[in-house]
Design a binder for these strands. Structure first.
Lengths: 154, 154
DNA sequence: TATTGTTATACTCTATAACTATA
DNA sequence: TATAGTTATAGAGTATAACAATA
């Protein structure tokens, strides 16, 4: 058993008592996020979109015409990330770009008719992703988890 | 206000009542994981390792000599992911490969002396990452969150 | 001048699939 | 056949830098 006066270096090898990976919040978050992504892919597979692409489409459907960086802020993606996501949505024909007459820096985005049809069909089944991800928990536990997560999320 | 007989397509545009992104578990998980990663990088920045590289080093420190895919299973990474992580750890000189005399398919991994020194120093501050990530919560809430997350994580 | 938006590049992580080698 | 490892491809996320436009 661990003596009180052994050093960290002595204790760490083959004795994880000093630091265990499994109960760390970052590790558990990565695993939970992994499983949520897997469920998203299995439920939404037919639509050929990723979770972030779906988030961008859903938000664009809610707010209508919006600039690229503003869409990123609304979906928790930095400018570089939203740029990559939007360029793939453009390639799929779900989104079109235009300019803002009042501010030449802005790239304004809107859903195409194809994009509107697609996000309608996606939203109809998207709730199933959350339901399946939270299946191991009771409803009250699920609410508690969402509350705690939103309090540690940026 | 929303009439009971309007269709999903009519309701979805500019009226997010039918499906909101923000309270979905996958979205909240992504944001929480984002913040945990940012805190990891700010606390562990001096060591020039990523969260998954740290996980692999910490586990390797605990279990000693182990095959590459087994290390992946122990740290929740699939073969392609652990392959990329290990190849970067090899480049940094933290890990060495060897063969298994009983099974020529296996690539066995071990920490180098440099790797052992590095992971010792990392473990000494790694707890600060979890502390800071969970700072918005009480201790009891933190325990509850870890419990709920581990139950929905693969 | 300082800030904002966009684009570009580089690196890492994740997942799937195809492939080789071994058991 | 089943498993282990490797490789290719694609998307996502992050960081950084460069540049244009705006305040």
């Amino acid at each position: 058993m661990a003596a009180a006066n052994e050093t960290a270096a002595q204790r760490s090898r083959h004795d994880p008592a000093g630091y265990r990976l499994e109960p760390q919040i970052g590790y558990v978050l990565r695993r939970a996020h992994q499983r949520a992504t897997q469920i998203f892919n299995s439920v939404m597979g037919e639509f050929k979109v990723t979770p972030t692409q779906f988030a961008a489409l859903a938000k664009l459907d809610d707010v209508g015409r919006v600039s690229q960086n503003e869409l990123g802020r609304l979906t928790a993606m930095d400018p570089a990330t939203i740029w990559g996501v939007v360029s793939r949505l453009l390639k799929q024909g779900y989104v079109v770009q235009s300019t803002d007459p009042n501010d030449a820096r802005l790239v304004m985005l809107e859903l195409t008719e194809t994009g509107r049809e697609a996000i309608d069909r996606m939203k109809a089944v998207a709730a199933e992703v959350s339901r399946e991800t939270l299946a191991p928990l009771t409803e009250e536990e699920s609410r508690k988890l969402l509350d705690l997560l939103s309090r540690i999320g940026s």
